[in-house]
């Protein structure tokens, strides 16, 4: 569960940017929420604060009732490793590791046994449709495949919450469909909370709810009906 209260983020610098100007919302466990808004509206900034990659200027973030501002840097690192998954816009994999090694890295860091993390990551790679790419190097994978490895990595620790910042931005239509359906499926099957940023309108149809941002404040919220979601999930639906 994510509970955000009056979140403010100001970037100090040559020009001071008020990226978030007091944002509050709540997301329940197992919800798939899309954050939408024009470029520069603060979507990525919001996700960075929630995923503990950055420190807000003020306001409160509660992740499962833990006030994350009370955590030290080390505790935040440990929290990310254990409870969060993050999918970056540009695949963000480690080039010296192959698909399965990239995937199992978080589990390895958590101290899992070799057998355990190999099995878990093989299963996940199969789930994201890369069962036949397990030992491929990153450079041998297409953009869509790389993004799916990144998703597998974000899931391998059985994270409660998955953050994805424009995960489809660099993908072609076919791969966009694959990734979005995958996210929806994960939410349904594993009860994962998913927070996805996008600025492409159709992509929101895979989620339960949309938070619209504009100039660092919430403009509106939108509930996606089950009918829209189901039609988006149909095979022939083309994500442009």
């Amino acid at each position: 569960m994510i509970n955000v209260k009056d979140l403010v983020k100001i970037y100090e610098g040559q020009v001071t940017v008020h990226a978030l100007k007091g944002v509050s919302f709540k997301i329940e466990q197992g919800e798939f929420v899309t954050i939408m808004g024009p470029s520069g509206s603060g979507k990525s900034t919001l996700l960075h604060q929630l995923a503990l990659l950055d420190k807000p200027t003020s306001g409160q973030i509660l992740l499962d009732d833990i006030d994350v501002s009370k955590l030290s840097e080390h505790e935040k690192t440990a929290y990310r490793l254990k409870n969060l998954g993050y999918v970056f816009q540009e695949y963000a994999l480690i080039p010296e590791l192959n698909a399965i090694e990239n995937t199992y890295l978080p589990l390895m860091l958590l101290g899992a046994r070799r057998k355990e993390y190999t099995r878990a990551s093989t299963e996940l790679l199969e789930k994201v449709g890369l069962g036949n790419r397990v030992h491929h190097l990153i450079s041998q994978l297409s953009g869509g495949e790389q993004q799916r490895v990144a998703i597998a990595r974000a899931l391998v620790n059985k994270s409660k919450t998955l953050f994805a910042d424009e995960p489809c931005a660099n993908l072609d239509t076919e791969n966009k469909g694959i990734v979005l359906r995958l996210l929806r499926q994960l939410c349904n099957e594993l009860g994962q909370t998913i927070l996805m940023v996008t600025h492409e309108l159709e992509q929101r149809e895979f989620s339960d709810r949309v938070i619209w941002l504009r100039d660092g404040i919430i403009e509106k919220e939108e509930i996606i009906s089950k009918e829209v979601r189901d039609s988006a999930l149909r095979e022939e639906y083309q994500v442009i």
Partner: peptide, 16 residues
């Protein structure tokens, strides 16, 4: 740098 940032983002300890 970027790679180190990513490793930190997924929760790798600085020490490692």
């Amino acid at each position: 740098r970027k790679q180190i940032g990513i490793m930190k983002a997924i929760g790798m300890k600085e020490r490692i």
